[in-house]
Every structure is written in C-alpha cells, then in structure tokens.
Amino acid sequence: MPKKARKTKSKEPKLSKPPKLKERGQGNFFEALILLLPSGLWLFLLLVLPTLVIFQLSLVPDIKPGMVVDPSGIENYLRAFEGTFLWVILRSIFFALGTTFSCLILGFPIAYWIGYMLPRGWRNLCLLAFILPLWTSSLLRSYAWISILRPTGLLNSVLVYFDLPPIQILNSPIAVLIGMTYSYLPFMVLILYTAIEKLDSRVLEAAADLGAKPSVIFEKITIPQTSPGILAGCLLVFIGSLGDFVDPELLGGASSMTMARLIYNQFLGTTQNWGFGSALSMLLIIAVSIAIALLLKYGDRSATEA
C-alpha cells in the first residue's frame, strides 16, 4: 500500500526549459568529466582492472605462478559448487548469517540503551567506550579470544573453579561465531545507534497512548521505524563477516574452512591454484556486490554514512 502512495506522491509541474540549458549542459558535462577523471582513473586502475584480471584468471583451470594465462572455461566455477567446496560456501554464508543474527540480537538492546535510554550527554562517551575495541588490531582481538576459549583458558578455568565440566570451544565453529560477533558488533551498534537515536519518543508515546503494550510498541513501531538502520547494519555485518579471514583462521582451526580462508590458501597457502582462487574470489565479489546493491537500495543512507 505505501508503495502505491509513493507513486502518486507529487507530480512536479513541468518547467519550461530555458533555451540556453543545452549549451550549459554540455559545458557541465565536460567539466564533470574532468572533475571525475582522477577518481575514475583511480577506480579503473585499482578496482575495475584488477577485477577483470581476477575474472580472466578464474577462467584458467589449475593455474599456478609461472604458467601462461590462457582462459579456457568455467571449470573453476563448476568446481566451486562441488561437494566439499559447496560446503565451504554454505559454511561461509552460515557464519555470516549467524554473525549478523547474533550481532543484531546483542546489538539492538545495546544501541537502544545508548541511543534512547541514556541521557544525551552520556551517549557519545558510552558509544566511544563501546567501539573502543575497534581501535585494536583484529588479530589482537582474535588472540584475546584464543586465550579465553582455549582448553586451559580463562573460560574453562572459571568452569572448573565452579566444578563444571570444561568445554572445548576453540577450533570449533562456535569459536568462530563468537569471534566474528565480537568483531562486528561495534559496527552493528554504531549503525543501529544512528537509527535509534532518531526515534521520536513522542511517536512511541503515541503508540502507548493508543493502547500498545511495550512489547507491541517494540514490534509495531520501534522495529519498523528503525528498519532501514537494521537493514543497513545487517547487510554491513553480513558483507564484512562473509569475507572475514582472521577470525575463522585463528579461532576455527581445522574445523572452519571458509571462502576467505580457501581463497587465501589458493594464493598463498601450501597448495596453489590461482585459477580456483580467482573463481572463488569472483563468487565472493558477486555476493558482496549484491549485498551492497541491496544496502544502497534499502539501507538507511544516513546511518551508513555516519
């Protein structure tokens, strides 16, 4: 229904065009071209060209350094969708979805608390404290989690102290999820915060006034009103975690091969297959591009800009 309404929105009265517009338009076109040239060149050289090279490489089966690049077919892509590797792709998506979900579940209350409950003066400080971990290296954060989760680590020491059986988390998918959630939670909170901060308390009061319980207000007002921010946060975390390398590598051990790790192995690992790695990279690029397109289309622009 709202969509229809949007279409009917406003029919701008057509202004009669000033006659000089065409010439001026052309001048602007060249001007714009010149202004865009440096960034265009930059984009072409550092984004378009390398992507094309990766694409070309992806069409060469079993290519290793020193071999001639001779694109011959899509075997690499077909291979990516074979049993084991399909599982790697699915696992990566699972990790990304899991991370997105847990970041949302954990991040929303935090962002809500900072952005809505806290007095204005405290918000920035609190937000700063919350995103402080982002100032440390992601590698360092993963190592911190290793020392917490390892069999004789902090977590198990606490469990043993309370006479509970120790648990084996390190080198398992759970460890990867924990690490990735920790890594991406600040991003989620930051984006949700900008959405939640814009929440009009009067609107929430209006809902209460009309008879909505707090839970109903949350479902029918808070979530819809912040949904562009939620979407932006989810997509951003999804994009980031889909390509995450450090957390699965350090926390997942042998259990959690992801696309990023597999790509790394194809280029820099002990087995090298740049063609297969390129095909996997292209798949990742395509997946991320789709996610970014969704983000631009439906996401809260102002939230992502913040």
Binding site: A5, D200, V203, A206, A208, D209, G211
Partner: peptide
C-alpha cells in the same frame, strides 16, 4: 500505565507513524 488509560492524546508534533499510511 499509559496504554491502559481511557484517554487518547493529540500530540503537538502529531507523532504520526511515518511507516504507516493515514488509514493504518
């Protein structure tokens, strides 16, 4: 609590739900 009181309010800023149309 507010949601159980037999009163309704017209807010100064109107506080309409921007994600719902007029009828909704």
């Amino acid at each position: 609590p507010a949601h159980q009181r037999p009163v309704n309010t017209v807010f100064q800023s109107y506080a309409l739900f921007s994600h719902l149309n007029v009828a909704e």
